[in-house]
């Protein structure tokens, strides 16, 4: 593994450790950098079309988020991230009736080629939010699309902060489940 990747691994591990300890800034930084890596990985693997690489990116980020307790803070973070990305990519192929074999060696070269830019096409906002209850939908879209904080969302929607947090977490879990079905 190149020294660039080694440094990246150290940076990312440090960011996720800080995130686990409650540093939201570090968590956002971590997720953006992981998104760029997974985007490069997915775009390289999806050659036939029919699958949107950005869907795989989002599904992987959701899985990383909901399963972050399965990362041991003393273990390297990239093998953990890519194992999840590979699982989600294989799942996306499986849902479309395609089979794909991904070897661990396959993603070594993509390690050095993150793709920070999102696809130019506007992602359909309603698609991910469709399956949510109205309350969850307004909370998730206030925080994500409108970029409000928990406190602002609570005031805006006339809810308690705790209720906003619960609706946000349940909404994200529901989106993750929905991804696996369509």
């Amino acid at each position: 593994m190149s020294s660039v990747t080694g440094k990246d691994e150290d940076d990312l591990s440090r960011l996720l450790r800080a995130a686990v300890a409650g540093d939201e800034r570090a968590y956002a930084d971590f997720l953006h950098r992981i998104a760029a890596r997974v985007r490069g990985f997915a775009r390289r693997k999806i050659v036939k079309g029919g699958i949107d690489a950005e869907d795989v990116v989002q599904e992987t980020l959701l899985a990383i988020h909901l399963k972050r307790h399965t990362w041991r803070t003393d273990a390297p973070v990239l093998p953990w991230v890519y194992a999840i990305a590979r699982f989600k990519l294989i799942d996306a192929f499986r849902r479309r009736g395609q089979r794909i074999e991904l070897e661990i060696g396959d993603f070594v070269e993509t390690l050095a080629a993150p793709q920070p830019a999102e696809a130019a096409s506007e992602r359909d906002v309603t698609r991910a939010l469709d399956g949510l209850s109205p309350g969850q939908r307004s909370v998730v879209s206030a925080i994500s699309v409108e970029g409000r904080s928990i406190g602002e969302t609570a005031r805006h929607l006339g809810m308690s902060e705790t209720a906003v947090r619960v609706a946000l977490h349940r909404g994200l879990s529901a989106i993750a489940k929905r991804f696996g079905r369509n």
């Binding site: 409650g22 989002q58 988020h65 506007e122 906002v125 998730v140 994500s144 946000l168 994200l172």
Partner: peptide, 16 residues
Amino acid sequence: MKTRDLIKALEADTAR
């Protein structure tokens, strides 16, 4: 949802 919007939501969700 755009990926950067999703990340805002993930960042705000501190539920353990």
